[in-house]
Amino acid sequence: MRVNVTVSLKAGVLDPQGQAIENALGSLGFKGVSHVTQSKLISFDLDSTDADAARTQVTDMCEKLLANTVIERYDIALEQD
């Protein structure tokens, strides 16, 4: 299956890159843009057909490496082949 892990800054943690993007969009004349955040998408194939087991394993990966849970949150999306 394909695994997509989105790692984002937690709510309340200042995101200077998101703010810079928001300012740049505003200066290009795009109206009504707010609360821009920048996230990371980490994708990989995982040799597994058991969604529950895969989710447990990927959660462990997030906790141990993919995210720094002091400042970041993660969302796991699984796509069955």
Partner: peptide, 17 residues
């Protein structure tokens, strides 16, 4: 040291980038 948990908190991108 923050990544391995010997010190608390985290170091983020400088505020002015």
């Amino acid at each position: 040291l923050t990544e391995i948990g010997l010190l608390p908190g985290a170091l983020m991108r400088n505020i002015d980038l």
